[in-house]
């Protein structure tokens, strides 16, 4: 078994227009920035992007490759000018946005990964986040039904990875990467280092190889929230 592919282009070879894509990362940490860049260069469009916030969706929105963004932050937390860019596209009918609370998004992704079609939660009751959803009382508390969220591809970032697809993550780079691995039909991981099978301590495997279909080595690209980049 060898899940390691030669380069980024090969890793994303079968992502086609209209695909639903989960992208890992939270602010400057754990973004699959190389895979995203490769997808932009390939020209794939009409994508639905499922992610934490602006660092993940911005390349797709700025390059008109997204038809829908599903995210905890569909605005930019620090830069109003980026918020205006996406708001303008939404008002012009060029883009659809769905703002989903971070934890609900996380659980919807996990549900997809775990084969759970839907779950009830009190989060969102009485707000737009609960609007139009089935409700049910549990022990007197109103809860809304949330559906699992599915995707064709998950683009994630690991630190070490082996040819079996086992991955480690550094500190908070776990963020959405662990939950997204296995939540899509195909999970593609970019990693800092490809290591030999057996090099990763079984007790240190953060993402188990069963969830990962492809691994590609790619340098760490850091995009800070204020806009500056560092490698």
């Amino acid at each position: 078994m060898n899940k390691v592919v030669a380069n980024l282009a090969e890793a994303i070879r079968d992502i086609e227009d209209g695909a639903r894509i989960m992208v890992g990362g939270f602010a400057a940490s754990g973004g699959a920035n190389n895979l995203v860049q490769a997808l932009i260069e390939k020209g794939t469009k009409d994508l639905t992007i499922i992610c934490t916030g602006s660092p993940e969706w911005m390349p797709f929105v700025e390059n008109d490759r997204a038809k829908k963004v599903i995210s905890g932050f569909t605005s930019h937390s620090l830069r109003p000018e980026i918020t205006e860019v996406i708001e303008t596209k939404v008002r012009a009918g060029l883009l659809e946005v769905e703002t989903v609370p971070h934890g609900i998004l996380s659980e919807r992704i996990r549900a997809s990964k775990a084969g759970i079609p839907a779950f009830y939660t009190p989060i969102g009751v009485g707000t737009v986040f609960g609007e139009g959803k089935e409700t049910k009382l549990f022990d007197g508390e109103e809860c809304v039904l949330e559906r699992a969220i599915e995707a064709d591809f998950a683009l994630i970032r690991g630190h070490f990875g082996d040819r079996l697809g086992n991955l480690t993550c550094r500190f908070v780079a776990r963020n959405r990467n662990t939950e997204m691995a296995g939540a899509a039909t195909v999970t593609i991981a970019e990693v800092e280092e490809v290591v030999e099978v057996g090099d990763i301590d079984p007790e240190r495997v953060d993402i188990q190889g069963i969830y990962v279909q492809r691994v590609v080595k790619a340098p760490k690209i850091v995009k800070w929230l204020d806009g500056h980049e560092a490698v």
Partner: peptide, 17 residues
Amino acid sequence: NWQLQGYHVGGIGGAIE
């Protein structure tokens, strides 16, 4: 605390939870 008047986009993040 998550969306300004008249906007379609907003930042709910983890505030609701």
